[in-house]
C-alpha cells in the first residue's frame, strides 16, 4: 500500500522540495525553524498554515474531479459558512453550535450541487456555477454587507491557535486529508468513485449506485469548503462576504491538477492534491519573501505553474525517454571514432 502511494506522489514531492531549495537560495532564512513559547515558528510553518484553505478545498475537489465533475462553488461556500459561523458566534450561540451551523451549511450547499448534477442532470460546470454566483449574495445577506467582526477567542483559535506546537489550521488539513484518505481507501468508496468517474454507465450497469455516490462527493466537497471557511474566518476574526474565498476554487482546481489528477476523472490521489496546495502556497510565499513588486506576482506564479505542469506532463516523459534512448546510440559511434583515430 505504502510504496505505490509514495511512487504516485513522488513527482509532486520532488517539485515541492525543488521549490523550497529555489526559495532558500533567494531567501536563505526560509528554512529557519525555532520554538517560541512552545510553538514552532518559521516561514515553512507559515506556508503550511496558509495552505490550509486551498488544501482543504483540494481534498474535496479531488473527489469531485475524480467523478469527472468540477466544483466552482467552493469559494462561495467558504463565504457562506464563514458568514454563518461569524453570525452565530456574534449572536452569542457559542462555538459548538456555530461550528455545527457552518458545517451543516457547507454540506447543504454540497447536497444542492450534488442533486443538480446527479438527479437533475445538469453539467457540473454549470450546476456549480449557479451557487458560485448566488453564494456570495447569500453570504452578504447574512453579514448585511459588512465585515462581520467577532471577538470570541475560542473561534479565533481555529484560525491562529496552536496545538502540540503546530498551528491549528495545519492540524485541520492534515486530519481531514488523512481521515478522508482512510475513509476512501479502507472502504470501497475510492474504487467506486473512480469507477463512476471513468465510466458512469458501465458502473451503473454493474450495480454501482452512481447517483448517491455523486451526491455524496459534492457534499464532501461542501464539507471541506465549510472547514476552509471556518479557517479563513477565524484567521481574520471576521466574515468578509465579498472577499472570503474569492477565486480560491481556481487555486483548488490548480492544486488538484498539479497533484497529477486528470480533469477527465478516474484515478485520484488526495495526498498529491494536498501537496499541490502546498506547492501553490510555497510559490506565493517565495514571491512575498523575494520582495518582487506586486505587478510581477501573477506572472511569476503562472510561469512556475507552467514549468511544473510541463515537467509533470506524460508527453514530456516519453520525449525524455526518446532523448535518453537516442543518447547511447550516439555514444558508441563516438567510441568507434576515438578507437579508430590512432590507426592511420
Amino acid at each position: 500500500m505504502m510504496v505505490p502511494t509514495l511512487k504516485r506522489i513522488a513527482p509532486q514531492l520532488s517539485t515541492l522540495v525543488a521549490l523550497i531549495i529555489l526559495i532558500t537560495f533567494i531567501f536563505p532564512s526560509f528554512l529557519n525553524l525555532s520554538m517560541v513559547d512552545g510553538r514552532l515558528v518559521g516561514p515553512l510553518v507559515d506556508v503550511a498554515k496558509r495552505s490550509a484553505p486551498v488544501a482543504l478545498l483540494a481534498i474535496g475537489m479531488t473527489l469531485v474531479i475524480a467523478t469527472k465533475g468540477i466544483d466552482l462553488s467552493v469559494g462561495a461556500i467558504i463565504a457562506i459558512c464563514g458568514a454563518s459561523a461569524a453570525w452565530a458566534v456574534s449572536a452569542g450561540y457559542g462555538l459548538g453550535p456555530a461550528l455545527v451551523i457552518a458545517l451543516s451549511a457547507g454540506i447543504a450547499c454540497g447536497l444542492w450541487n450534488g442533486v443538480l448534477v446527479s438527479m437533475v442532470g445538469i453539467q457540473p460546470f454549470v450546476a456549480t456555477l449557479i451557487l458560485m454566483t448566488a453564494g456570495r449574495g447569500i453570504a452578504q445577506l447574512i453579514t448585511e454587507g459588512r465585515i462581520l467582526t467577532f471577538t470570541d477567542p475560542s473561534f479565533g483559535w481555529i484560525g491562529s491557535g496552536t496545538l502540540f506546537g503546530l498551528p491549528v489550521p495545519v492540524w485541520l488539513w492534515l486530519a481531514t486529508g488523512v481521515l478522508m484518505a482512510l475513509l476512501l481507501r479502507r472502504t470501497a468508496l475510492g474504487m467506486l468513485i473512480e469507477a463512476v468517474g471513468i465510466n458512469r454507465r458501465a458502473s451503473a450497469l454493474s450495480g454501482v449506485n452512481a447517483r448517491v455516490l455523486l451526491i455524496a462527493v459534492y457534499a464532501a466537497s461542501g464539507f471541506c469548503a465549510a472547514l476552509a471557511g471556518l479557517v479563513v474566518t477565524a484567521d481574520i476574526r471576521g466574515a468578509d462576504a465579498n472577499n472570503a474565498g474569492l477565486w480560491l476554487e481556481l487555486d483548488a482546481i490548480l492544486a488538484v491538477v498539479i497533484g497529477g489528477n486528470s480533469l477527465l476523472g478516474g484515478r485520484f490521489s488526495i495526498a498529491a492534491s494536498v501537496i499541490g496546495a502546498l506547492i501553490i502556497q510555497t510559490i506565493n510565499a517565495g514571491i512575498l519573501l523575494g520582495g518582487f513588486p506586486p505587478e510581477y506576482n501573477l506572472v511569476i506564479k503562472a510561469a512556475l505553474v507552467v514549468v511544473i505542469l510541463v515537467l509533470q506532463s506524460p508527453n514530456l516523459v516519453t520525449h525524455f525517454a526518446f532523448l535518453r534512448g537516442a543518447l547511447p546510440t550516439r555514444r558508441p559511434s563516438e567510441q568507434v571514432q576515438q578507437t579508430g583515430k590512432p590507426k592511420p
Binding site: 474504487m191 469507477a195 471513468i198 465510466n199 458502473s203 454493474s206 450495480g207 454501482v208 449506485n209
Partner: peptide, 25 residues
C-alpha cells in the same frame, strides 16, 4: 462504453459488481 471501466485494473473490473452489491462499507 457500457461494459469496461477502462482505466481500472482487471482485478478492479472483476470485483466491481460484487463490491457494489456488498456496499462500500
Amino acid at each position: 462504453t457500457d461494459g469496461i471501466v477502462a482505466d481500472l485494473t482487471i482485478r478492479e473490473n472483476i470485483v466491481l459488481a460484487l463490491q457494489a452489491s456488498k456496499g462500500w462499507m
